[in-house]
Design a protein around this nucleic acid. Structure first.
Length: 421
RNA sequence: GGAGGGGUGGCAGAGUGGCCGAAUGCGCCGGUCUUGAAAACCGGAGUGCCGCAAGGUACCGUGGGUUCGAAUCCCACCCCCUCCGCCA
């Protein structure tokens, strides 16, 4: 959530920043509630202080004395007033908090203003797309043996659409990708964690999935738990309600997890094959950093993700996401899109973002500056990488005339072979 | 799942209705002493909210309730431990 103190001081600045995003939010109502809240708190605390003082005087009177009895009558009235003022203060505080949770993060000044994804800026490319043009290139889902190795019909039978089985050497290739990504992350200084795949409401609220995006997550209504849409949720929440030492920062971690997304209402032709699934595997990088370093760290994070595509020899482009396409909790976001030569499309395989203090404030993750008061940290995360679309690109870009697919060199030792198909 | 026990400050651990934001010990920070260190002694130290400040207020697992007054009594929930059952 945003810093209410900054909002009080610079309403128009925040309003301007948020206007660039596509989310609806009512700053005037928030500010009005903030004012009401402060008044209500002051009133309740004043009355409460009077009650406490009177109570202390009363404790010294002999119980059952006339004086005590008279005082008691007075105190009952005061107690009623305190109760009333406190419940009023509590109520307005809850309203204030719930509105505050609907205010998105303010985009960084370097984020281009735009309406939607067509306004995203391509800031870099790597690799030669034209070199991959060949007549026999096909979409991965049109490779003749595709369904033998990535079995969608069986997935439909067992679960539903978007939950394929990976079979045989394809399962092994997926495992090789996971292993490769984790090895690279570890070499880059990210400590590996194996995280819960199910989280509670507080965790989902802290990272910004709730209260607004229930449609994205599978949930267990009985237990009030959610299947994670990304490792970002459990991993970021690792330090929820904790205070880190300044010298510990930055903390860098990586996690492999399956990810579960309902993708309600977004099923269509663009999403055949591996392009969009309800369950997919991903390695995620997460950083907790000093506020002054977060934009610098974002560049490093992006480079770490990019290096994976380079090592896999997959051409990609880097997009700086515009204000209209950027997510609710994000201050700045880069997407990496890999070239899929069969579909002749760019596929998003990574999103690297700086959330500044937005998630950390919701999650109450702080650090203690040298001898000072705790301050909110900044959090970042980036996919490194989402596996099905990387796999799609490998299948399409590396398809040979003989119908087999060449496995990228760096994966061969982990995969245990040179070809698949 | 059944039966019992328990959740108090960084940790350990007192506290069963007002004198408790909370004893004591350990650990931590600063100082005295010392050539230096240890020991000893002295002092300090939680987090949030309201307030320009002085200060006020909240927080003893969480949320309700009883009471003039709750860490302390009542209810619900969460979590941990022990035993039994079941299971990888």
């Amino acid at each position: 959530m945003i810093d209410i103190k900054i909002l009080r001081e610079d309403l128009e600045g925040i309003r301007e920043g948020l206007a660039k995003k596509k989310f609806e939010c009512d700053l005037d109502r928030l500010l009005e509630l903030d004012k009401q809240r402060r008044e209500a708190v002051a009133l309740a605390e004043e009355k409460r202080a009077a009650q406490k003082a009177a109570n202390q005087a009363m404790a010294k009177l002999p119980k059952g004395s006339d004086e005590f009895q008279a005082k008691l009558k007075e105190m009952k009235v005061l107690a009623g007033e305190v109760k009333e003022l406190e419940s009023a203060s509590k109520e307005v505080n809850e309203q204030w908090k719930s509105v505050l949770l609907t205010i998105p993060n303010v985009p960084h000044e370097s984020v281009p203003v735009g309406k939607n994804e067509t306004d995203n800026q391509q800031i870099d490319t790597w690799g030669d797309v034209d070199a991959l043009v060949s007549e026999h290139a096909v979409a991965h889902y049109d490779i003749p043996w595709f369904e033998q190795k990535i079995d969608f019909p069986r997935g439909v039978k067992v679960t539903g659409a978007g939950f394929p089985f990976y079979v045989g050497d394809m399962a092994r290739l997926v495992r090789a990708l996971i292993q490769f990504f984790l090895n690279e992350a570890a070499a880059g200084g990210y400590e590996e964690v194996l995280a819960p795949l199910v989280v509670n409401e507080a965790s989902a609220t802290a990272t910004g999935q709730l209260p607004d995006k229930e449609g994205q997550m599978y949930s267990d209504q009985n237990e009030n738990l959610y299947l994670i849409p990304t490792a970002e949720v459990p991993v970021t929440n690792f330090f929820r309600d904790e205070i880190l030492e300044e010298k510990e920062l930055p903390v860098n971690r990586c996690a492999y997890t399956p990810c579960f997304r309902r993708e309600a209402g977004s099923w269509g032709k663009e999403v055949r094959g591996l392009n969009r699934l309800h369950q997919f595997d991903k390695v995620e990088l997460v950083k907790w950093v000093h506020p002054e370093k977060s934009y610098e760290e974002l560049e490093g994070l992006r480079k770490d993700a990019e290096s994976l595509l380079q090592k896999l020899e997959l051409p990609y482009r880097v997009l700086l996401i515009c204000s209209g396409d950027i997510g609710f909790p994000h201050a700045k976001q880069y997407d990496l899109e890999v070239w899929a030569g069969g579909q002749k499309r760019w596929l998003e395989v990574s999103s690297c973002s700086n959330f500044t203090d937005f998630q950390a404030r919701r999650a109450n993750i702080r650090f203690r500056p040298q001898g000072g008061k705790p301050e909110v940290v900044h959090t970042l995360n980036g996919s490194a990488l989402a596996i099905p679309r990387v796999l799609a690109a490998i299948l399409e870009n590396n398809l040979q005339e003989d119908g087999r697919v060449r496995v990228p060199k760096v994966l061969q030792p982990l995969y245990g072979g040179e070809f698949i198909g």
